[in-house]
Design a binder for these strands. Structure first.
Length: 475
RNA sequence: GCUCCCUUCGUCUAUCGGAAAGGACGCCAGGUUUUCAACCUGGAAAGACGGGUUCGACUCCCGUAGGGAGCGCCA
């Protein structure tokens, strides 16, 4: 039977980068084994779940390229089925009503903590007569868990992990208002969805032991567990807002490409020998549970950037050019240097970007950098000259440009080689190094001190625009 | 406090009892060069600590330290 896995996030904000990796691992496993990848939204907490957050999950998964099978299951819609299961457990004597008030429980925990005891429900209503209940208390329904023995989780990543029965208390299955708890809902849903492998964060490892009790009580087949390590911030602490971007779509805004994210996230906690860069197809082919490590990994932005740069360089040039053109207009919101500016694309923008894209791609680690570097060729209107370029355009440099313009005007074949030859000849005649001429040219042509090669730029701009930009700064 | 998990260069990792402990990012140096990159070459850099087991431990066991997770009528 082909495996069926699921990604089961709770919709409480953006799709977190850690959750995204969990989704990726599940997706990879399904792809690798020819199984199915399902999506279930754990929205049973009505107060925290919003439709915007659900949409954010869809958006994040789509951007990452992780397609799920069929429609997402909304856990909140399955409450009747969850109650039905609890009724069955009640009937079988595997669950019971507990009439403790919140105050009772609080007091119990306080005493346990004070006495250095583990904080667990003590099972006081296990065999007590409901007639003893205080009036007005709506009972919760608790699982009647075994009090002796141990629960074994044969985890595919963590190995065999044992929990003594004394560690596990009688957890709540149904709340006082009749709504199901998470612990109950996951098990029922995973069972009903025929989930064969549960791949999720280690923060659920302890839960697995509790959930196992429900599988056992219902006589259900227990899925294979694989609890993967968490991602920490660069400082080793839990990944949080102060570490920067957390939601996957924030990475899109920062200019990271989905294929780079997939590669980076896969490498975080999973390895295939010494391989560092692998396509999604290769990852699918290689991915397997035994390759997953057990220790938490720190998020390393430098490495992500490096990978992203690699994928920018190796992207299909035509596709990349299209993406750049689409991103340039977003620059005011993505790059502080363009904040507040009005963006208008030049009629020749597409053509220029297409010819310059291989050169541009080598100089960018993210799509925003790429768009920013493309701006001098993509934008309409007067060319802005930044401070460093301005500093380069000293009077002597402007005079040099003045002597260069007629030389270039005389070039018939507007090509890199011909232009190169012409400029070199001029440089030699003036006993200058090529760089002495190239830098002022660059400043005049792009308004910046770094750019693709000046001859490539001249070709991309075309004779008229190229000469016009030089003339504008010449004297 | 109790339970569970983790620990190889700064970071991500390879190693599955016998190697000079390998790769990648980052860093440093050099080469190439019209800038910046890209690219090429070289370099510094690691088995937390203490005990065992073994002819032999990074690898297996125990302990210590450090880190993480869980202990809800949250998910």
């Amino acid at each position: 039977m082909a495996p069926i896995v699921r990604f089961a996030p709770s919709p409480t904000g953006d799709l977190h980068i850690g959750s995204a990796r969990t989704a990726l691992f599940n997706w990879l496993y399904a792809k690798h084994t020819g199984g199915q990848f399902l999506l279930r939204i754990e929205d049973t907490d009505a107060e925290r779940s919003t439709t915007a957050a659900i949409d954010a999950i869809y958006e994040g998964l789509r951007w990452l390229g992780l397609a799920w099978h069929g429609d997402a299951v909304l856990q909140s819609k399955r409450a009747p089925r969850h109650r039905e299961v609890v009724e069955a457990m009640l009937a079988a004597g595997n669950a019971y009503r507990c009439y403790c008030s919140p105050a009772d429980l609080e007091e119990m925990r306080a005493q346990q903590k004070a006495g250095g005891l583990p904080m667990r429900y003590d099972g006081r209503w296990r065999d007590r007569d409901p007639a003893d209940a205080q009036a007005g208390v709506k009972p919760v329904i608790r699982l009647k868990a075994p009090r002796t023995g141990e629960t074994l989780i044969a985890d595919q990543v963590q190995g065999d992990v044992r929990f003594a029965a004394e560690q596990l208390d009688d957890m709540v299955l149904l709340r006082g208002d009749g709504s199901p708890t998470y612990m109950l809902a996951v098990v029922v849903d995973d069972h009903d969805m025929d989930i064969t492998h549960i791949i999720r964060g280690v923060d659920h490892l302890n839960n697995a032991a509790r959930q196992m009790q429900i599988y056992l009580a219902m006589g259900w087949r227990v899925p294979v567990f694989a609890h993967i390590p968490l991602i920490h911030g660069p400082d080793g602490a839990k990944l949080s807002k102060r570490h920067g971007a957390q939601g996957v779509m924030e990475y899109e805004k920062l200019g990271y490409r989905p294929e780079a994210m997939r590669n980076y996230l896969a490498k975080l906690g999973w390895a295939h020998g010494d391989d560092e860069i692998f396509s999604t197809d290769q990852t699918i082919q290689w991915f397997d549970l035994p390759g997953i490590g057990r220790s938490a990994a720190r998020f390393d932005y430098d490495k992500l950037r490096s990978l992203n740069g690699h994928y920018i360089q190796s992207a299909d040039p035509a596709q990349l050019a299209t993406e750049v053109l689409a991103r340039v207009p977003r620059l005011p919101e993505l790059d502080p240097a363009f904040a507040g500016q009005t963006i208008a694309l030049h009629p020749q923008a597409a053509a220029r970007i297409r010819t310059l894209i291989p050169d541009l791609a080598k100089r960018a680690k993210d799509m925003n950098e790429l768009a920013s570097n493309a701006a001098p060729f993509a934008l309409a209107g007067p060319l802005p000259v930044d401070a460093k370029a301005e500093a380069l355009l000293k009077p002597e440099a402007r005079a040099l440009l003045g002597r260069l313009v007629p030389v270039l005007s005389a070039v018939n074949d507007w090509s890199v080689t011909a232009l190169d030859a012409a400029v070199r000849t001029l440089a030699e005649a003036e006993s200058l190094k090529l760089g002495d001429v190239a830098q002022p040219m660059r400043a005049a042509l792009t308004g910046r001190t770094t750019s693709p090669g000046v001859f490539e730029v001249l070709v991309a701009l075309g004779r008229n625009e190229g000469l016009a930009r030089l003339r504008a700064q010449a004297r």
